[in-house]
């Protein structure tokens, strides 16, 4: 360098000014982050993984969610965290012979699980397909005519609660896992939102919160579960949880109660006298995409 001492210092000064300007510009560019961080408490940020919560921690967490919900929506909700029932593994079977495609199940899911109203989100998608083959490529989900159409059949698809769940294996942070009763759950406070599970799921069962879901206060279902239908934050994954806030209390899932035809059969796979076991033993049962080896706990069947 052959600059004079004066040149060097002027250059250094200019560099410093440039660096300051650059830093200020970046701070300005990132300003929207400030409002985002404002809505987040340090408990949110430092939330503990569900499996690492002890009894006391869980109680605190449930209370925090209830208080947060009250603050944000004005609604008093009751959040529970029922543990799996020992000796129970849930199974679900769906009778394709009598499903009429009325979408009552999808609608019940929408209301029960506090789904975003604008997108009419639901964990269930009902496909209308031509009789003759199960060809999703020829199926539609947005039919609006009266059902059932004589030349069609209907196939609702939701999380298959796989025993060998690809979505669970791929999660980089163990934010989704399979519970002892077979339900694959998501910890909404732990998910980082990478959506690898959504790519891995062969059944289009997962939904991402592209923005915070919006539910009018008076429509919020106050009976909520930590791992199920509590209001989800923005940027995390969610999925069907067999209504575990109901089913772990012995109740039927909302989609089953809404089904007018009784096409849905729910129960304990480990109980040889359960209805679901009767279906598996006496009906022609199949699982979706069996060749993938996902081992679903969700079955489809036909009446002979």
């Amino acid at each position: 360098m052959s600059d004079s001492a004066d040149g060097v210092s002027r250059r250094t000064l200019l560099k410093a000014a440039g660096a300051t300007l650059g830093a200020a510009a970046f701070a300005q560019a990132l300003a929207p982050l400030a409002s985002w961080a404002e809505g987040m408490s340090s408990e949110d940020f430092l939330a503990t993984h569900y499996k690492e919560l002890d009894a006391e921690g869980l109680k605190t967490a449930l209370k925090r969610i209830e208080e947060d919900t009250k603050k944000k929506t004005g609604v008093d909700v009751h959040v529970t965290a029922d543990a799996p029932i020992p000796g129970v593994k849930f199974g679900y079977a769906l009778n394709l012979s009598i499903c009429i495609g009325c979408r009552k199940c999808a609608e019940a899911c929408h209301e029960e699980n506090n789904h975003d109203r604008k997108t009419n989100n639901s964990y269930i998608r009902v496909f209308e397909m031509d009789k003759g083959s199960i060809d999703f490529a020829k199926g539609t989900v947005d039919y609006a005519h009266p059902v059932p159409q004589p030349d069609k059949f209907y196939m609702p698809v939701q999380c298959q609660q796989c025993d060998n769940a690809p979505c669970v294996s791929v999660c980089p942070v163990e934010a989704t896992w399979k519970e002892a009763d077979g339900i694959v759950v998501v910890d909404y406070d732990w998910c980082i939102g990478c959506r690898y599970c959504e790519a891995a799921c062969p059944y289009h069962a997962r939904r991402f919160n592209w923005q915070a879901p919006e539910v009018p206060a008076k429509e919020i279902n106050p009976d909520q579960g930590y791992l199920s239908n509590r209001l989800r934050p923005q940027g995390v994954m969610e999925k069907c949880h067999f209504c575990l806030h109901r089913t772990r209390k012995g109740k039927l899932p909302a989609c089953l109660e809404a089904c007018p035809t009784g096409a849905r059969v729910f129960g304990n796979l480990l109980d040889p006298d359960s209805e679901i076991r009767w279906v598996l033993a006496n009906k022609r049962v199949f699982v979706l995409k069996e060749e993938l080896g996902t081992k679903p706990s969700f079955f489809y069947f036909f009446d002979e």
Binding site: P172, C191, I192, G193, C194, R195, G235, V236
Partner: peptide, 12 residues
């Protein structure tokens, strides 16, 4: 930038 919750990247 593809991650929905960058604030939780420490979970990794």
């Amino acid at each position: 930038v593809d991650i929905g919750r960058p604030d939780r990247i420490w979970h990794m």
